[in-house]
Simulated scan of single mutants.
Amino acid sequence: MRIDAADSNHRRPILIVLHQESSSPGRVGQMLLQKGFDLDIRRPVLGDPLPATLVDHGGAVVFGGPMSANDPDPFVRSEIGWLNVPLKENRPFLGICLGAQMLVRHLGGNVQARADEKAEIGWYPLHPTDSGRRLLSAWPQMVYHFHREGFDLPHGAELLATGETYPNQAFRYGDNAWGLQFHAELTRAMMHRWVVHGAHRFVLPNAQQGREHLDGRMLFDDALKLWLSHFLDIVFAKQRALAA
């Protein structure tokens, strides 16, 4: 499905890859539309094909989902293999949670849970590295998570931010591939939906309860939203410049 916005600069659309019928690109999608991009939304889990080339796209964003990057499902394997397209063509690519873990798997890294089964579900501290601070001077102190697996830093990747439960939280690979373990894309409606439908996971070690998710949003979301806007400008900076 394609969502079109007024686009006087004729920017190429951003490919949006989602993993459930009800999934939304949330605030990432809203911000990209505001920045003048169209969205080309596809759901491989429902049979949507991914393009053989991104020559007609300004980049791609692969979002999260309830599945694991280690799952044997054909669409998971196919999607991981497809990541060679943005990497080979050096197109802007952003992987969020599952999307980042798929990128790690494609690059030969491991995705796995902690031995003590601690999850990150709720709001947790984020610590930018020196490389992260050079990229963006202001990072949010707390970010939102909903996962029980983390990942190794791929060989050759640059670590941008760390966490306490899962150390690898944000990285860049090459010039144009980015991975985030945390979620900055959630709107308020999305968070309410996740808290309701994901409540069964609150029993996992280290997981926060639903009220903490919602209370944390009031405290920490403004900084996360501001950071996301600046971060998307960096990820898609070349495409913005081409259309300027």
Rank of each mutant, 00 (worst) to 15 (best):
L186T: 13
L135C: 11
E164Q: 14
F171M: 03
G150D: 10
L136N: 04
G156E: 11
V203C: 10
T162C: 15
Q181N: 05
T162R: 15
S137R: 13
A161Q: 02
R211D: 15
G156K: 00
A138S: 14
H200C: 09
V195S: 10
Q141H: 14
T165E: 02
F202V: 02
H145L: 04
G198F: 06
M190T: 07
L160A: 04
R201K: 10
H127G: 00
E158H: 00
A157D: 03
G179V: 06
F146A: 06
G156R: 01
H127N: 09
L180F: 12
G150Q: 11
A177W: 01
A161P: 02
L136G: 08
L186N: 14
T129I: 04
P154M: 01
A138T: 13
T187D: 10
H147A: 08
M142Y: 09
M191V: 13
R201H: 14
H192W: 02
F151Q: 05
H155P: 00
L153I: 08
E164I: 06
E185L: 01
W139Y: 12
G174K: 02
N168E: 11
P125M: 13
P128K: 08
P125G: 12
F182K: 00
L126W: 06
R172K: 13
W139Q: 05
A138Y: 01
R134N: 10
A157M: 03
P128T: 11
M142V: 00
A207F: 15
L204F: 08
F146D: 04
T162V: 12
Y144G: 10
A184Q: 04
P140R: 03
R201P: 00
H145S: 05
G174A: 03
R172Q: 13
A189N: 11
H192C: 13
F151W: 10
A177D: 03
A177S: 11
L136M: 15
R193C: 04
H145F: 15
D130Y: 00
Y173H: 11
A177Q: 02
Q208E: 12
